[in-house]
Design a protein around this nucleic acid. Structure first.
Length: 105
DNA sequence: CCGGTGACCCGAG
DNA sequence: GCTCGGGCCACCG
C-alpha cells in the first residue's frame, strides 16, 4: 500500500466522459497541495496499464499535460477522451464546468 | 546524505 | 495574456 495506490484508487473512480484535475485528485487522495505527487504517480504508470484511466486526469487549465519524453501519448490521451464524448475547444482545452468530475461525497 | 527532476498549483506584479 | 517565485514531496543517481 503505497502513496500511489491511494492516487490510483481515486483516478480509477473517475467515470467515463468526465475528467479530474491533478489538484482535485490530490485532495481526494488526502494529498492536498501535493499535486506534483499525482503527476509523478501517473508518470510511473506504464502505457500498457489499462486498469487506470490516467487519460482522464488533466491540469487545472483544462489542458492535457505531458512531459516531452512522452510525446505521442498526448495524441493517445486526447483520442481516448474524445472517444468518450469529451470535446476540445479551438484552444485544445476542455470545458471544465461541463466535464469536471463531481465526486460523490 | 544531497541535489536534480517532475503528467502541478496558486498568488503577485 | 505573460513571467517569477514559493510550496509540496517521492524517486533516482
Amino acid at each position: 500500500m503505497s502513496l500511489y495506490d491511494k492516487i490510483y484508487e481515486v483516478v480509477y473512480q473517475i467515470p467515463r466522459g468526465k475528467v479530474a484535475t491533478y489538484g482535485q485528485v490530490a485532495e481526494l487522495a488526502n494529498l492536498s497541495r501535493k499535486a506534483r505527487l499525482v503527476g509523478y504517480a501517473l508518470y510511473k504508470i506504464p502505457l500498457e496499464t489499462t486498469d487506470i484511466p490516467w487519460h482522464r486526469v488533466i491540469n487545472a487549465q483544462g489542458e492535457i499535460s505531458h512531459s516531452i519524453w512522452r510525446k505521442g501519448t498526448d495524441y493517445l490521451q486526447r483520442s481516448r477522451l474524445e472517444s468518450e464524448g469529451i470535446q476540445f475547444n479551438t484552444q485544445g482545452k476542455i470545458n471544465l464546468s461541463q466535464y469536471l468530475w463531481k465526486p460523490t461525497v
